[in-house]
Design a protein around this nucleic acid. Structure first.
Lengths: 194, 194
DNA sequence: TTCACCATGTAACACGTTACATGATTGG
DNA sequence: CCAATCATGTAACGTGTTACATGGTGAA
C-alpha cells in the first residue's frame, strides 16, 4: 500500500527509472523503507495503469535502454492526500524484542552476548544516520531545500531512535550482568529454564 | 516465521488456549508484536503437526470447551535456539516516516497538524508502557522472576523509543514552525509544491 | 576473462489482514 | 432481549521475500 506512495514521493522530486528507484530505496529513504527490484518493477506498471505515473523509454548507447517514470497530476493528488493522512505509529513487529522477552529464561551470559552483537548493528545504523545527516545538510541547520527538509527530518528521527536504543542496550547489558552475578553462586544447573 | 516463536515463548511459561494467546498478543508483549486469532489458530495446528506443541481438550461447563496447548521438548529446543540467534534491527518499514520524507513539499502548517496528531499516538503508547512498567514490576527494580525479567526489558525498550520519538516530534514541530514563518512573507502561492 | 554495474523482469511461496462464519453463556 | 465474552475457525486478498532468468557494457 505504501510502497506505492514511497515511489510517488521519489518521483515527485524527479523522473527516475525502476533501477534508480531500487537504488534510492537502498539509500537514505531506504534507511527506514527498503524494497527490492522484484517488487518495484511490477508496482510501477500498476501505478502507470492507474494513471498515477507516465513513462517513456530512453534509448542509451553503451547502456541498456531504460524506462523513465514521471508522476502525473492525479499521482501528485494521491501523494499529497497520503502525506497528510493519519498513520498510527508502527514500532510493532520486532523480532529481536520478542527474543528479549525470553531473556529471563536463558543463560544471562549468552543473552548478554546476543545483546551485545545486536548493539553493534545499532551502532552501525547510527553511524549511517550520522553520515546521512552530514552529507544531506551541507549548509548546516537552515538552508534546506524542499526535498532535503523532509529527508533531514526522517534522518533525525533515525538518530533519535538509534541513540535511545543504544542507551537501552547499555541498560539491558547491565541488568544481565547483575542477573548473572546474582545467579552465579546458586546456579548449579546453570540457571537455564527455557 | 516468528509468530511461531512468539507463541512458543508464551507457551514456555504456561499452557494456554488459542483464545488466551490471542488476548496475550494484544496485551503487554503485544505492544510490539500483535497477531490476530485468524493467524494464531492455524499456526498452532502447524506447530502441533511439527511436534513443537501438544494439545488437549478441556471440557468446561458454562463455557465452550477449549484446547490447551503445551510446549514440547523439541519446542523448547527450537525456542532456545531462536532466542539467542542473531536478528538485524527492524526499525524499517515506517509508513509515517515515509510521509515525513515529503514534508518539505506540502504546506508546513498542515504538516505540523499531522505531526501533532501523530505525537498524541506516541504519548498514548508511552503511557501504556509506563503503566506496564508499573504493573509488571511491583517489587521495584530487582526481585523479578524469569518471565518478568524479559518482559520488563522489552517494556523499557518501548519506554526508551517512545520518549526519543516524542523528543523528535517536538523538534520536528519546531522545524515546521520555523519553516512556516520563513515561508509566510513570500508565500503568495501558499508554498505548496507537492 | 572475469567481475561489477546497468537494466528488467517472472514464479513460487511465506506472511499478514480483512471479511465472513458459528455458537454457547453471562450480565444488564 | 441485547450486548459482551468465550471459543474456534475458513476464504480471499494484499504485501513482501526468495529463487530464478536474461543480457549488454566498462574496467581490471
Amino acid at each position: 500500500m505504501s510502497l506505492r506512495c514511497a515511489l510517488l514521493a521519489q518521483l515527485n522530486v524527479e523522473e527516475l527509472s525502476g533501477y534508480e528507484l531500487t537504488r534510492r530505496l537502498a539509500g537514505s529513504p531506504g534507511l527506514f523503507w527498503q524494497a527490492r527490484s522484484q517488487q518495484i518493477y511490477p508496482e510501477l506498471v500498476r501505478l502507470e495503469e492507474q494513471g498515477l505515473l507516465t513513462s517513456r523509454v530512453v534509448e542509451q548507447a553503451s547502456r541498456p535502454d531504460k524506462r523513465l517514470y514521471a508522476i502525473t497530476e492525479p499521482g501528485r493528488d494521491r501523494l499529497r492526500e497520503w502525506v497528510l493522512s493519519e498513520s498510527p505509529p508502527s514500532f510493532a513487529k520486532d523480532d529481536f524484542l520478542m527474543k528479549v522477552w525470553s531473556y529471563g529464561m536463558v543463560d544471562p551470559a549468552a543473552a548478554r552476548r546476543a545483546l551485545s552483537l545486536h548493539r553493534t548493528h545499532h551502532e552501525l545504523r547510527l553511524a549511517r544516520f550520522e553520515e546521512a545527516a552530514r552529507v544531506g545538510s551541507p549548509g548546516g541547520a537552515e538552508a534546506l531545500d524542499a526535498r532535503q527538509f523532509g529527508e533531514q527530518l526522517t534522518i533525525h528521527a533515525g538518530l533519535h531512535v538509534e541513540r535511545s536504543l543504544l542507551a537501552w542496550c547499555a541498560m539491558a547489558e547491565e541488568w544481565l550482568r547483575e542477573r548473572e552475578t546474582a545467579m552465579r553462586p546458586s546456579a548449579t544447573e546453570k540457571g537455564q529454564t527455557a
